Amino acid sequence: MTNYLGYQRKPHYYETDQMGIVHHSNYIRWFEEARADLLDFMDLPYHTIEEAGIIIPVLDVSCQYKGMVHYGDQLTIQVYVEQYTGTRFQFRYEIINEQTKKLVTTGTSSHCFLDQVRQRPLSLKRSYPEFHARFIEQFGEK
C-alpha cells in the first residue's frame, strides 16, 4: 500500500481579500477538497460511493487558524483519519505552507454513512464489505 502524501493546493485570487490574505471561509472547502482527494487516492471516489446508494453527510466541522495564508502560497493539506467505526468516521486536517514549512491551519470533520433512500445510518462492514476493506487497508481499525 502506498502512503497518501497530502493534497497540494495554491489559493486562487478570488479566495483572498484586498490584502491578498485567504478569507477564513475557504478553509472548510479546502478540507472537503482534500477529503475527496484522499478518497480518490483510495480508489473509492465520492461518485462510486454515491452510485452504491451511500451518502456521507458532515456531522460537524472545526477549524483553528494558526497563521495567515496568502495568494501565491503553496500548501499541502494532510488528511488523517482519527476514528473509523464502519458507520462513522472523523478526519483531522493540517495545512502546511510549503515555503515556510509552518503549520498554518488545523481542523476536524466528522461524518457518517447513510443509506441514500432510507436516510438511515448504515454499516459499511455489514452492507458494503468491499468499501469497508478499503478503509481498513488505508487507516486500520480505529
Rank of each mutant, 00 (worst) to 15 (best):
R88N: 13
I55G: 09
Q78K: 12
H132Q: 01
G6Q: 05
R88G: 02
G67F: 00
T85D: 09
P45H: 02
I95D: 02
F113I: 10
C63D: 09
V104I: 10
G67C: 03
T2F: 00
H70F: 15
S123K: 06
Y46S: 01
P11D: 03
I28R: 01
Y84D: 05
R134P: 06
P121L: 11
V81T: 05
I95P: 11
H47P: 04
Q99T: 13
D40M: 13
E98W: 00
K66Y: 03
V22L: 12
I28C: 06
N97K: 08
R126F: 01
M42C: 13
I54G: 00
L39C: 04
F139T: 06
N3D: 15
C63N: 04
M42I: 11
Y7K: 03
E94A: 10
H111E: 08
I95C: 15
I77V: 09
T100I: 02
E82Y: 00
Q83S: 14
L103C: 10
V104D: 10
I21D: 12
W30S: 00
E51G: 09
E130S: 13
Q74P: 02
V117R: 07
L103D: 04
D43R: 08
D43G: 03
Y71C: 01
R29V: 13
R29C: 04
Q116Y: 04
P129Y: 03
Y46R: 00
Y93F: 15
G53H: 05
K142D: 07
Q78A: 04
G140I: 11
S62A: 13
Q83A: 06
H12L: 15
Y80I: 05
T85I: 06
I95R: 06
Y80L: 09
M1V: 11
T87Y: 01
C63F: 00
A52S: 14
Q78S: 00
E82R: 12
F41L: 02
V79R: 02
S110A: 14
H47M: 08
L124E: 02
H111S: 11
S127Y: 08
M42K: 13
T76V: 14
Y128K: 06
